[in-house]
Simulated assay, not measured.
Amino acid sequence: MKQKTFTKIFTDEKLPFLELRYSNNTKHYKEHIHETFSIGINLEDKSIYTNKDKKYDFDVGMIALVNPNEIHSCNPILETPNLYYMMFLDEKWCYGIQKSICDESNSFKAFPKDILYDEKLYNEFKDLCETIFSDINYFEKENELINFFTELFRPFLKESTSKIDDPIFEKSIEYLKENYKENISLEELSKEFELNPFYIIRLFKSKINMTPHAYLLNIKINKAKEFLKKGLSIVNTALECGFTDQSHFHRNFLKIVATTPREYQLNFI
């Protein structure tokens, strides 16, 4: 029986720098280029990955990386469809992430390898792709993208070690504390303080080693713990802390407190 093929593409106007393809097909591509930085994995079966003048037997567990304007192709070896994720990222966005790591960067630095053999990174990228296709809000998706690509680019950049002394940090902290019920995006924060969003990432990383979104999430969870101790219902606690729904609240509470909201509240009843 012939296996059904499909292609699903994720885009979001709130994440304009990103396109993600989830596909299962037998199509063969001619060598081509993208203006984006591209990264992909196979979930099933093998393919032949070519990048410039090199060819690789590309298998499950490997990560393919393609710098902007590099000629490449990736085609299945067998006649059966191979299942894969392929992500395309705007070069300027990637440069912003690199700049947040290394202040000396003045343009996008090409990734030094065509292929990676890294089980941990492979699984993290797979999880990231599943997260992007999930129904969680775009703030969380953006945060996961920032975290993953910071870790991907960091090893081959000269990381800035100097601490940034900027009074805007304390003001932005107060702003997040005052507006913890809101889901404040990186773009909104950058507009509020008239700063480059990637400078804000670097500022927060330099001061507290987390992204602004991760910090805001911690404020929300700490507020939630206060409400739960006072006996507020889990539903109302989630609403008071600005979570979009109960599952969103439950997932993030468990992630940070290592117990469910209900289990936590039972300690105080």
Rank of each mutant, 00 (worst) to 15 (best):
D166K: 06
P167H: 12
I168T: 10
I168V: 15
F169H: 07
F169D: 01
F169L: 06
F169G: 01
F169P: 04
F169S: 05
E170C: 02
E170S: 07
E170D: 10
S172M: 14
S172D: 04
I173S: 00
I173E: 02
E174H: 10
Y175Q: 05
Y175P: 00
Y175G: 01
L176C: 02
L176T: 00
K177M: 12
K177Q: 13
K177C: 04
E178V: 01
N179V: 02
N179D: 09
N179Q: 10
Y180P: 00
Y180I: 03
K181I: 08
K181G: 01
K181T: 04
E182W: 00
N183S: 11
I184Y: 03
I184K: 01
I184E: 02
L186K: 06
E187S: 06
E188H: 03
L189G: 03
S190V: 08
S190Q: 13
S190I: 10
S190G: 12
K191A: 05
K191P: 00
E192P: 02
E192N: 10
E192K: 14
E192G: 02
F193N: 12
E194H: 09
E194W: 06
P197F: 13
F198A: 06
F198C: 03
Y199Q: 05
Y199H: 04
I200P: 00
I200A: 03
I201R: 01
R202V: 02
R202N: 06
R202T: 07
F204Y: 15
F204N: 00
S206K: 10
S206L: 09
K207Q: 15
K207A: 12
K207W: 08
I208P: 02
M210G: 12
M210H: 11
M210W: 10
M210C: 15
M210A: 14
M210F: 11
T211H: 03
P212T: 03
P212S: 03
H213G: 05
H213N: 11
A214I: 13
A214P: 01
Y215A: 12
L217F: 08
L217H: 05
N218L: 10
N218S: 13
N218R: 14
N218F: 08
N218M: 14
N218A: 11
N218K: 15
I219P: 05
I219N: 08
I219E: 09
K220P: 04
K220Q: 08
I221N: 04
I221E: 07
I221F: 11
N222P: 06
N222W: 09
N222F: 12
K223F: 04
K223R: 14
K223W: 03
A224E: 09
A224D: 12
K225L: 07
K225Y: 08
K225E: 14
K225C: 13
L228F: 11
L228H: 09
L228Q: 11
K229Y: 11
K230F: 11
G231T: 10
G231R: 10
G231P: 01
L232R: 11
I234M: 08
V235E: 13
